[in-house]
């Protein structure tokens, strides 16, 4: 990758900073060694504990205005997806190219409901895929990490799993297993650090419920830009 360029006088910019920074009488403040320590729950969870986390996630997600539910197996998931497709009258949807979604053979479910499901990438040409993506009524993604305490999906993006799928359509359907569930931030940040170090993916999106605004008379309204209808389908491990 080509190195970017720097505009502006770096030396002048930094001398204004360095000339002014002072060391207080007691010395400069030290870096907080473990910033998250003691503020967030931190533990390794068992399968049983993750079932408790699943219930917590469902509670949080539903409170936020989404719909979350647990499903025992693919068959139950297929039934639920059919309900969503009918409820939202979805005719065309797109999904991430993800091995776990591949295994679930979701295209068959859409076919049964006389709807279509396209796998990312929709097209290589910018203007073509952007127009196609805009026409999609739902986006289906794999919930890579899910934070139970706040009802948050943590979605590191990649070539096959772009953020467009989870932000453009009015309906978002996230599928994941209880194995993806963690308590909260402590585990998420440790996991991201372990996985990527400081080389984070191009984007990592934290989604906590549907798009919302209270900009008009503090009246909460759902779906002003991002997804209005958000579903979380949690498969048991």
């Amino acid at each position: 990758m080509a190195q970017g360029t720097l505009t502006g006088d770096r030396q002048a910019f930094f001398s204004a900073i360095r000339n002014n920074i002072k060391t207080p009488p007691g010395g400069k403040a030290k870096r907080v060694e473990n910033p998250m320590e003691g503020l967030f729950t931190q533990r390794e969870t068992t399968v049983e504990e993750r079932q408790v986390l699943r219930d917590r996630f469902i509670q949080e997600w539903n409170t936020l205005g989404g719909q979350a539910f647990s499903v025992k197996d693919r068959q139950e998931l297929v039934g639920k997806l059919g309900e969503i497709i009918r409820e939202r009258k979805i005719k065309q949807a797109m999904r991430w190219d993800h091995p776990e979604l591949e295994k679930l053979q979701l295209e068959d479910v859409f076919l049964q409901e006389q709807a279509s499901l396209s796998k990312w990438p929709l097209d290589k040409d910018y203007q073509t895929w952007i127009d196609q993506a805009e026409a999609m009524e739902a986006g289906i993604i794999w919930g890579d990490i899910a934070m139970a305490e706040s009802g948050t999906l943590v979605l590191p993006a990649s070539t096959a799993q772009p953020t467009t799928v989870c932000i453009l359509p009015i309906t978002l359907i996230a599928i994941f297993t209880t194995a993806q569930l963690v308590d909260g931030f402590y585990s998420v940040m440790k996991l991201l650090k372990k996985r990527y170090g400081t080389s984070l993916p191009t984007t990592t999106t934290f989604i906590t419920g549907p798009s919302r605004t209270s900009d008009i008379e503090m009246d909460l309204t759902i779906g002003v830009h991002g997804s209005k209808y958000v579903y979380a389908c949690i498969l048991d491990e």
């Binding site: 949080e60 984007t203 999106t205 906590t208």
Partner: peptide
């Protein structure tokens, strides 16, 4: 700010798309 546990969309972005990525 708003009494939420987390803002709905928190995006952590490193900027330029890489490899075969189409969006970003």
């Amino acid at each position: 700010a708003t009494g939420q546990k987390l803002t709905v969309y928190n995006t952590l972005s490193t900027g330029v798309r890489i490899g075969e990525e189409l969006d970003g």
